[in-house]
Every structure is written in structure tokens, then in C-alpha cells.
Design a protein around this nucleic acid. Structure first.
Lengths: 237, 237
DNA sequence: AGGAAACCTTACGTGAACCTTAAATCGGAG
DNA sequence: CTCCGATTTAAGGTTCACGTAAGGTTTCCT
């Protein structure tokens, strides 16, 4: 994950004291590359020279308004833009967002909220496209990593097969609760499966051989006779 | 640019009439794939089954609160989340945004604004990746430089082709995690691809010939039978 | 206790999933 | 148009994850 604090921010506001205030808040939160502009013209100037990564715009400017500034900017760039202005009427917000702003905050504002919203935007912009995440969790001394499909126990790593992965995922999603054999079969084979029920037992056994100290005396993946199985995980939630 | 109106939205709110209202507004604006959940438990359930592209969460739920729901969701996914709730105190907004929400709206709200904010988020998520810088990383003794598209091994330099570059990028972005064959195909060929799956294998083989000491005994680019591939990179986070 | 039902354990054969190589095809530059 | 590298198709080879089976063990009820 890229660090969002190194990004270049441009603050456009005609009142120097407000710019200073915003600047201070942002620096307090770890942002260091902050540029200022006091007018429409200056904003365009700075925009082209420093090429900021995100712009915080006021609506009221001496030589124009923030909305048309955004329009100008959007012709050549899709830089993230957050409006921060005293103009908080419904129409203003709709206009700003409709023009393609990423967020719209009304003054007076919470500095911390400004930082969080900036972070939220930058997080999205620079997040590499990630696929679905799988859980990673601890069972006793072993780490079950469904992300990489590996169970590791002080050094040695045991890879999980596709079926083991599917079953462990289902079990973990319903951790500390009973999961019926039917539900497990469905998770691993889909709705339509008519194989032997023994098959599931064999896979459970194989999982136990990877996650249990003694597969025949399971501590984590327990049998609930007549119902199914349950994975006991302590700690998180 | 992908059309944002086809994305799957999940609306979590305990009051059916509010869900209906939101649903109606969204459909008016062109969204068609809208799913509902009335409780924490139902939300998690729907979340896992339909895998929505964005979630609109209420804070107050009969069996929990939206904040812990977001925490649960964030363990396995970085899906965009927008809070829409009557809880509009400063602390609530800071908490919600601090937990990783993308936006926070307070009821009563303008339907049009909700749509604009959802659109703003989805626009960012599905925008083509911003960063013009590609990663450079080490695999054993070889340096994989996606910036210049060259794999170098003490002296000799092997150039990467377009497909190899795309695949390696996707693998590196999800390093140490299983990447499904589908995801890889999508990264290299786009959503609509109906060629032979063998094609992917051939490209994987080519990559292995450039990054592995022994392409037939891969150390870095490993197959996970039945699931896909994973690129094991040690070190940098 | 006896017996049956549910579950465990181990081993093995098989074929889907994957590998490998080469030849065919595509597509851009000259 | 021709060439050449990049990419895809094709076909035969390999392997290992999975399902099956069969005998064993535990649990529970009469």
C-alpha cells in the first residue's frame, strides 16, 4: 500500500488565514507537500506546475468560482477534488458533486474529518485493484493463511488444496458455530453433489492433519455428531 | 470507462420503508442491481453470497451496529462503503470514516446527493489505475523491473512482453496471495475473453523461463492446483 | 451386553488439471 | 508486401488432488 501522506495537496482558498489553518491541520496529520493558491488564476497556474495529487477547493474566489475552476481542471485531468466551502446549500452540493467532485464538505468543518475524507479518496485512487481477501487466522501455534493457501507451523509450511481451502473458508466464516455437513459439501462442491458422504470425512481428516497437533484428538476442528463440524477459533470477534 | 450503473449495490437498513425509498431513488437513477439486508447477520450473509460492489450501511441495526459490521467486512474485503444514517454526531462521522468508510451521509438526505456520492466513489474505484510507476522487485537473484519491462540476472537482461508484463503486474499486486486464473485472464485480456485457458499456461511458462532458475521447478511463481497461481515475494511488506 | 449407526482411518487408482513443445497465426514496422 | 517478434492454437505428456472403498473405532440406544 502506497503511503498517502507523501501525496501533493493543493489548497485553494482566498482567505490566507483559512489556508494556513488547513495547512496546519494537514501537516499535523502527517501530510508534508501542501501547495497554496488564493485565486482561480493562481490555482490553474499552480495546478499545471506542481501537478498535485488532490485539490481542496473553496467555492468563493475573487476572480471566479470553484465550480468553474473544477470544470476547467476536469478538461485536462481527473485529479481528485474535494470542495471545502461555506456554501452549503443543497444546490451547491449537488452542483459540486455533479461536476465530478469526489467529496463536498461544508464549513465550519472538523479538521480530522477533512483528513479522513482526503485519506479515503486517496486510498481509493492509489489502491491497486485488489481481489477478494481471504481470512488469515491463528489456531494454537499454527497460522492458517487462506490468502496464500498455507498453514505454517514454526517454520514448515503445508500448502492447502482447493477443497481444503473451500472447506476451511466455510468453517471459518461460521467459526465457533456448528456447520452442517450439507453446508460444507455445498461450499466445496456446489448445490449438486451426490457423491459418498465419506468423501467429506476424508477431507476433514486431511485438514486435521494440517492444522491439528494430533489429528485423531482434534482441538480446533471438532466433530458434532449427527450435525456436522465446527471450527473453534478464539480471539478475534 | 466502465458503466457504474451495472454495479451491484447492497443497502443495509432495518426499516423496510427506508430501504424501499433508497431502492426507488437508485433505480430511478439507472441502478438496477440492488440488494437489501435488514440486519447485521443478513448483511454478512448477503455480502458473501452476492458480493456487491458497494454497500450503503445504516448504523443502527437490530442485532449490532454498522460500525462493527464495517469492521467485519473489512477483514475480508475492501469494498467501498457509504454510511447513511441518522447518527450525525461528530464522533459518529469520525468513527465511521476512521474505520475505512468511503463516505458518510446523515439523514435526512437528498436522494440525488446519495446517487452522486455513490457515483463519485465507484468512478474512482473503477478508474484506470492512476499510478504511472510500475513496481520493481527482487526475486531471488533476479531483478524484475516492470518500470522498464526487464528482468535482469547478473548481467543478461530479458525483456518482458506486453502480456507477461500485465500478468506479472497482477501477480505482484497480489503477491503472496492466490490469484485465480480468471483474475489473471481478466488482467491480461479484459473482461471479455473466450480463448483457450491453455493460453494462460503458456504465458505462465514463458514468465517462468524468465524469472525462475528452473522453470519446471518454480520457486516464485507457483501453481495452486484448482485455484490459480501465486507469486511468492519475500521482504518488502 | 449387544448391535447398529455415525464417524474415523488408510491406501490406492484415476482423470481432470496442469505442463511442455512446436507449429500456426496475428499484427505492426519498414 | 514482407519480415519478425508476440501471441495463440494444438496435441501429447505428466502428475497429484480427489474420490472410492473397505475395515476399524466410537457413540449411543435398547
Amino acid at each position: 500500500m502506497e503511503n498517502v501522506k507523501h501525496k501533493k495537496l493543493l489548497v485553494v482558498d482566498d482567505e490566507p488565514e483559512i489556508r494556513q489553518m488547513i495547512d496546519r491541520f494537514l501537516r499535523n496529520e502527517g501530510f508534508s507537500r501542501i501547495f497554496h493558491a488564493a485565486s482561480f488564476a493562481e490555482a490553474l497556474e499552480v495546478f499545471h506546475t506542481v501537478k498535485p495529487d488532490l485539490a481542496i477547493l473553496d467555492v468563493m474566489l475573487p476572480d471566479g468560482d470553484g465550480f468553474s475552476l473544477l470544470s476547467s481542471i476536469r478538461q485536462t485531468s481527473n485529479i481528485p477534488v474535494l470542495f471545502l466551502t461555506a456554501r452549503g446549500e443543497d444546490e451547491d452540493r449537488l452542483l459540486g458533486l455533479g461536476l465530478g467532485a469526489d467529496d463536498y464538505m461544508v464549513k465550519p468543518f472538523l479538521p480530522r474529518e477533512l483528513v479522513l475524507r482526503i485519506t479515503a479518496i486517496l486510498r481509493r485512487v492509489y489502491a491497486p485493484p485488489q481481489q477478494e481477501r481471504y481470512p488469515v487466522f491463528q489456531l494454537g501455534s499454527r497460522l492458517v493463511d487462506l490468502e496464500s493457501g498455507i498453514v505454517s507451523n514454526n517454520g514448515d509450511e503445508l500448502p492447502l488444496t482447493a477443497k481444503e481451502h473451500a472447506l476451511l473458508l466455510k468453517l471459518y466464516e461460521n467459526r465457533n458455530r456448528i456447520v452442517t455437513s450439507d453446508a460444507l459439501c455445498q461450499a466445496a462442491w456446489g448445490d449438486d453433489y451426490f457423491g459418498y458422504e465419506n468423501t467429506l470425512m476424508v477431507h476433514i481428516r486431511r485438514i486435521r492433519e494440517k492444522i491439528e497437533v494430533n489429528p485423531s484428538k482434534p482441538e480446533f476442528l471438532l466433530t458434532v455428531r449427527g450435525l456436522g463440524y465446527k471450527l473453534m477459533v478464539r480471539g478475534d470477534e
